[in-house]
Amino acid sequence: MSKEDSMKGTATSEKGESTKAYDDLRKWGFLKIKRTGYGEHVSIFPNMLKDVQALLNPNPQAVVKDRPPLEYSIDPEFDVNPFLTAYADKVINGKRGKYTYHKSLAGPERIKAYVSVEGEKIYIINLGSFYEKDSLLAKAVTRIDEKFGSRAFAKAEMYDLGRDIVGNKQPIKAILDVLVSYNYLIDLKEGYYKRTTKQLPKSGLEDFSSE
């Protein structure tokens, strides 16, 4: 667009500040300038788009396209800052899903995964706590021990653990990410995993005070 159009919408009293901001962005390498016979035209350098997004919303989980930030969707009982971030293995329609993992603010530690694409929340996975025997995490560890023991197993074999655990591909990835993060599994790469000697906590929820 033209230089003039890029500064439209600013008050007359702020014209000086707009011109300075334009010059600063050009100096810092954000703007690509093209001089034509009918004036100066400007665009954003493609390699600076991520920096522009960070300026517009400094939170790395911020959404785009006028949607509310993903952190607004995080359960208020959970830490808005993820302790672990991962990305989907495959790109679908040019987009790769982002997985953020959040811990409960109160103990015993529970975990929720939020799956998003370009900052938009699309799926929540309640992984639960290693202290809860019926949680996705605890059941996954128990059944991995029963089915695979100490042998290496492929990610695809996780479907053998039962639909109540895996559900679909998203819970499988979330479970694997967290089990590796907490050292219940070793990631052997190439889609293979192996159990460590780490055991589930023996304490139950009744051993923790709610106060």
Results as ranks from 00 to 15, higher is better:
156 A>W: 01
132 E>I: 08
126 N>M: 04
183 N>W: 04
208 F>V: 07
69 P>S: 13
198 K>G: 03
73 S>L: 05
170 Q>R: 13
168 N>D: 14
191 G>V: 00
58 P>V: 02
57 N>W: 03
211 E>W: 07
85 T>E: 11
84 L>I: 02
78 F>R: 02
38 Y>C: 03
141 V>M: 12
94 G>F: 05
65 K>Y: 13
155 K>D: 05
154 A>Y: 00
80 V>N: 02
165 I>K: 04
51 D>H: 12
131 Y>P: 00
144 I>E: 06
211 E>S: 13
153 F>W: 06
203 S>H: 08
194 K>S: 09
31 L>G: 02
131 Y>C: 04
175 I>S: 00
115 V>K: 11
98 K>H: 14
31 L>A: 07
10 T>Y: 05
210 S>R: 08
199 Q>N: 12
48 M>V: 02
62 A>E: 09
192 Y>D: 00
180 V>L: 07
172 I>G: 00
205 L>S: 10
64 V>Q: 10
66 D>H: 09
45 F>K: 14
82 P>N: 02
198 K>F: 03
93 N>M: 05
63 V>N: 14
7 M>I: 10
124 I>G: 04
75 D>V: 03
3 K>D: 08
8 K>E: 13
135 S>A: 12
27 K>P: 01
161 L>N: 06
169 K>Y: 06
18 S>D: 11
41 H>S: 07
56 L>R: 12
195 R>L: 10
201 P>E: 12
11 A>W: 04
24 D>C: 08
121 K>Q: 12
68 P>L: 09
159 Y>N: 10
203 S>F: 06
102 H>K: 09
183 N>G: 04
73 S>I: 00
115 V>Q: 10
41 H>W: 10
138 A>G: 09
78 F>V: 01
155 K>E: 13
158 M>R: 06
26 R>E: 15
149 G>E: 09
89 D>M: 06
162 G>Q: 11
117 V>S: 12
197 T>M: 06
87 Y>R: 12
109 E>A: 05
135 S>D: 06
100 T>A: 02
67 R>A: 09
38 Y>I: 08
95 K>D: 07
154 A>M: 00
44 I>P: 00
103 K>S: 11
167 G>A: 14
6 S>Q: 03
114 Y>F: 15
184 Y>C: 03
91 V>A: 15
129 S>C: 10
2 S>L: 11
57 N>R: 10
133 K>N: 12
48 M>Y: 12
115 V>Y: 15
108 P>F: 04
170 Q>T: 15
51 D>K: 11
40 E>Q: 12
187 D>W: 00
21 A>G: 06
84 L>N: 06
178 V>H: 00
36 T>G: 03
179 L>Q: 07
19 T>V: 08
153 F>Y: 07
51 D>L: 10
51 D>M: 09
99 Y>C: 04
21 A>M: 11
159 Y>E: 14
69 P>E: 10
39 G>E: 13
133 K>H: 07
92 I>E: 12
